[in-house]
Design a protein around this nucleic acid. Structure first.
Lengths: 226, 226
DNA sequence: GTCCGTCTCCCCCTCATGGGGGAGCCGTGC
DNA sequence: GCACGGCTCCCCCATGAGGGGGAGACGGAC
C-alpha cells in the first residue's frame, strides 16, 4: 500500500517515439489519479529528470537510440535514492530485452499493443508495488513473488507461466479456429488429449474459454493479425 | 470536389506497426472532417475490411510481413468495386516500392516523417481525387495510370453483407471475451436477443463459432490488438 | 533410486453454445 | 396502404466445451 490512495501517481514517459509518448500521455492523463509529470526521448535523459521530478513510475521503452531501457533502468536503480518503479514498454512479448530489463530490476513490462485500460491498470499496479507482467497468465503468478527487484523470481514465474511446446501447438491451432476434434486430427492425438492441453492453456492464460484464450493470444502478440 | 464537404472522409489504416496506426489515428481523428473507420495490421486483411467498411481512403504501409502494400493495392483495385483511394505510407522517400505501388494504382504516397498538417492534407487531397505525390517527378509518372472502373450496383450486395450496428456491438463485445449472458447484461437486452445477433454475425462472417468470429475480427482489422 | 513435469488417454458431469424454427414491434421506403 | 429490414424475444434440440477427477509412459533432475 502506498500513498496512491490520496495522491496522484506521477509518471515519467521515456520513449524515442513522440507518437508513443503522446499516446501514453493521452491514455494516462485521462485518469484522475494519474499524472504525467515529464517526458524524455532517450534513456540518457532519464537520470536528471528522475532526480528533478521524482516520479512514482517511469514508463520506459526498451529500444532507444542512445541509452536503451535496460541500461537506463540499471542507471536509475544504481544512482537514484528511493528510485521510482520502472515499467518497461515493449513491442514484442518475447523480447529478450524484457528479460534483461527485469534482471536489471524493472518492476514489470507492458506491451505497446495493450489496451488503454490495461496500460492504466499496469501503471496503478506497479505504483502500488506489484510486479506486473503483461499476459493475464503471468499476472496471476505475479502475486506469488512479490516486490522488487523482480529479477530472478520473475523469470522463474515467467517460465512457469510459459506454455509447453504442445500447449503452444494447441493454442496456435485454436487461433486458427479449429475445434478440439480438428486439433486432435491435426496433431494426430486423441480428442481427450487435446481437451487436456486446452484446459492447461486456459488455466495458464487465465482464460475462461477458448475465445478468451484466442483473444489473449492476439493481445499478447502470441499471434499477429495478417 | 466530392461530398467531402458534408460527409467526413473515412480512412482505413493498414500498417503492421500498431504505433504507426495509433499515431496516424491520433493525427487524423483530430480533424473534424476525417474519420478513421478501421485498422488492419497487414495487407492480407485489407480486402474484406474495405468491403465491409468502404473507406474513402486507405492509408497503406508498403512494407508489411505477409502481403505488402503493392500487392495489397493490386488486390484491392482488382477485386473491389468502386475502390477507395490508396495512399501509400512509407518511411523512405526513394523507396522503389513506392514507385511500384504507384504503378499498381496507388493514388499517392506519404512519408511517415511528414508533419501532422501534411498528413491531414494528403488524406484530404487524395479523398478529393487528387493524385498526391511528393516528388514532382513521380507525379507525371502516376498520371499515366488513370482512374479505375467505378461500378455502383454491387454496392447494395456489399452493404447487405455488412454488419448492422447492433451486430457490430455484439461482435465487439465478443472480441472482449464476453459470454452471451454477459453481452446481454452489457447491452441490456435478453439473452435470446444476443443469441440471435451472434448467429447473424457468425453467418455474415462465415464463422462456425464465436472463436472463429473473433479471429475474423482480428484478421480483418475490425479490432486490432492494442 | 526417487521425484517431477510433459504428453498421452480415460471417466463422469454440467451447461453454454449454436442451429432450427417462429413472432411482434417499429421505422423507412415504395 | 404494403413490404422490408433491424431489433427484440421465445421455443426445442444436439453437442461441443470445459471442469474435476484420474492414470500410465517417458525423460530429466536430484
Amino acid at each position: 500500500m502506498t500513498y496512491a490512495d490520496w495522491m496522484p501517481v506521477t509518471v515519467l514517459l521515456v520513449d524515442d517515439e513522440p507518437l508513443v509518448r503522446a499516446g501514453l500521455r493521452a491514455v494516462l492523463e485521462a485518469q484522475p489519479d494519474i499524472e504525467v509529470v515529464g517526458e524524455a526521448a532517450d534513456g540518457a535523459a532519464v537520470i536528471p529528470l528522475v532526480r528533478q521530478l521524482r516520479p512514482d513510475v517511469v514508463a520506459m521503452d526498451v529500444r532507444m537510440p542512445l541509452l536503451d531501457g535496460i541500461e537506463a533502468t540499471r542507471a536509475v536503480l544504481r544512482t537514484v535514492q528511493d528510485p521510482p518503479k520502472i515499467l518497461v514498454v515493449t513491442t514484442f512479448e518475447n523480447d529478450e530485452y524484457v528479460y534483461e530489463a527485469l534482471r536489471a530490476g524493472a518492476d514489470g513490462f507492458l506491451l505497446k499493443r495493450a489496451r488503454p485500460a490495461e496500460i492504466v491498470n499496469a501503471v496503478r499496479l506497479v505504483a502500488d508495488g506489484e510486479s506486473l507482467l503483461f499476459p493475464a497468465a503471468v499476472r496471476q503468478l505475479a502475486g506469488e513473488y512479490g516486490r522488487r527487484p523482480g529479477n530472478e523470481e520473475a523469470r522463474a514465474a515467467l517460465d512457469r507461466a510459459a506454455l509447453t511446446e504442445r500447449e503452444a501447438d494447441v493454442l496456435r491451432l485454436m487461433t486458427r479456429g479449429l475445434s478440439n476434434a480438428e486439433i486432435a486430427t491435426e496433431l494426430i492425438v486423441g480428442a481427450e488429449t487435446v481437451k487436456s492441453h486446452v484446459s492447461s492453456v486456459l488455466a495458464k492464460l487465465g482464460a475462461r474459454d477458448r475465445t478468451q484464450a484466442v483473444i489473449a493470444a492476439y493481445e499478447s502478440g502470441f499471434v499477429a493479425p495478417g
